[in-house]
């Protein structure tokens, strides 16, 4: 079937956007309906793409044409998950695929992630006598903050004595800077998303901004 004309697409999108923004004034039906429509359509979209991009070729090509019947096993395993909606005495069977996925992914985390962690640890081995004085100071600061933060979060260590108290205070201040930077990054992200919607309304829809 042919698609909607671009202007209709944009107008529907703009009405939806304004309905969502109306929530800022007051909780209302327009927002509530748009929210529900979005959830429904998004769920359907995921299912449609899984069907066309993954399940259809699996059944038509791999199992049907190429005769890879062993692939029926994972399909059957996935279908077991639906038993959670069945009679109570069958529900436990639906946990089998879940256990397989969780166990399998746990195995992957333990097998492959340590190398990533090692990269993180070796990335902290910085030269204290770098090319410039500024770089050296930064490197020393970097290592100190990293080590002190690790110490700070070892809750088994008692925070007693001048050294530990000093480390605690230093770490707290460094961490506050990180949180402050994080907060400002969060603001940047949210503002960007809103200005993107303004661009959509003024530019794409109304054509007022090029």
């Amino acid at each position: 079937m042919g698609g909607l004309p671009k202007t209709v697409e944009l107008t529907i999108g703009a009405i939806g956007t304004l309905a969502v923004f109306s929530f800022l004034y007051k909780e209302n039906l327009a927002y509530r309906y748009m929210e529900h429509i979005y959830i429904g359509l998004a769920a359907a979209h995921g299912a449609v793409l899984t069907f066309h991009n993954q399940l259809k070729p699996l059944f038509l090509k791999q199992i049907g044409a190429q005769g890879q019947y062993s692939l029926l096993i994972p399909v059957a395993m996935g279908l077991l998950l639906y038993l959670r909606y069945g009679p109570k005495e069958w529900v436990w069977i639906s946990r089998l695929p879940m256990a397989f996925w969780v166990g399998y992914n746990a195995g992957y985390t333990l097998a492959y992630d340590p190398k990533v962690l090692l990269g993180q640890i070796t990335g902290t081995f910085l030269k204290f006598s770098a090319k410039t004085v500024g770089e050296s100071i930064n490197n020393i600061l970097f290592v100190l903050i990293c080590v002190f933060t690790l110490v700070y979060f070892m809750f088994t260590l008692k925070r007693e004595g001048q050294v530990m108290k000093g480390i605690s205070a230093f770490t707290r201040y460094a961490f506050m800077v990180a949180l402050g930077v994080g907060f400002s990054n969060g603001i940047m992200a949210r503002v960007s998303l809103f200005l993107g919607r303004v661009q959509f309304l003024l530019g794409d829809w109304l054509g007022l901004v090029k």
């Binding site: 995921g46 299912a47 899984t50 069907f51 993954q54 399940l55 699996l58 692939l71 994972p74 399909v75 059957a76 395993m77 996935g78 279908l79 998950l81 639906y82 695929p97 397989f100 996925w101 399998y104």
Partner: peptide, 9 residues
């Protein structure tokens, strides 16, 4: 694991 996940679509 991939296909069993897809079957739960």
């Amino acid at each position: 694991a991939m296909y069993s996940g897809a079957a739960a679509f």
